[in-house]
Amino acid sequence: MRPKNAIMLVMTAFIWGTAFVAQSVGMDYLGPFTFNGVRSFIGGAALLPCIFIIGKMNERGRGADQAGGSRKNLIVGGTVCGLLLFAASSLQQLGIQYSTAGKAGFITAFYIVIVPVLGIFLKKKTGIKVWAAVVLALTGLYFLCITETFAVGKGDVLLFLGALIFSVHILVIDYFSPRVEGVKMACIQFFVCGAASIVPMYVLEMPRISDMAKGWLPLLYAGVLSCGVAYTLQIIGQKNVNPAIASLILSLESCFSVLAGWIVLGETLSVRETAGCVLMFAAIILAQLPERKKEEIQYG
Rank of each mutant, 00 (worst) to 15 (best):
N5H: 11
M8R: 04
L9H: 02
A13M: 03
A13R: 01
A22D: 07
D28C: 00
G31F: 04
G31S: 13
F33I: 09
G37S: 09
F41N: 02
G44N: 07
L47R: 06
P49Y: 05
C50A: 12
N58R: 13
R60N: 14
G61P: 10
G61A: 11
R62Q: 11
A64K: 11
Q66T: 13
G69W: 01
K72C: 09
V80M: 09
C81M: 15
C81L: 15
F86Y: 13
S89H: 03
Q93P: 08
K103E: 07
I107W: 12
Y111S: 06
F121C: 01
L122Q: 12
L122K: 10
I128Q: 13
V130Y: 02
A132R: 08
V135Y: 14
V135K: 00
A137Y: 06
F143N: 09
T147I: 02
T149K: 13
G153L: 08
G155L: 04
F160W: 11
L161P: 04
A163Y: 07
A163G: 07
S167D: 12
L171Q: 07
P178Y: 05
R179F: 08
E181V: 06
K184T: 10
C187Y: 01
V192K: 01
C193A: 15
G194A: 09
A196W: 05
M201W: 03
V203W: 14
M206E: 15
P207A: 12
R208P: 00
L217P: 03
P218F: 06
G223R: 06
L225D: 10
L225T: 02
S226V: 10
V229F: 02
Q234A: 11
V241E: 07
N242A: 09
N242G: 10
P243K: 08
L248K: 04
L252A: 04
L252H: 01
E253R: 09
W262K: 11
E267I: 15
L279W: 05
I284Y: 08
L286P: 05
L286F: 06
A287P: 00
E295S: 03
E296A: 10
I297K: 05
G300F: 14
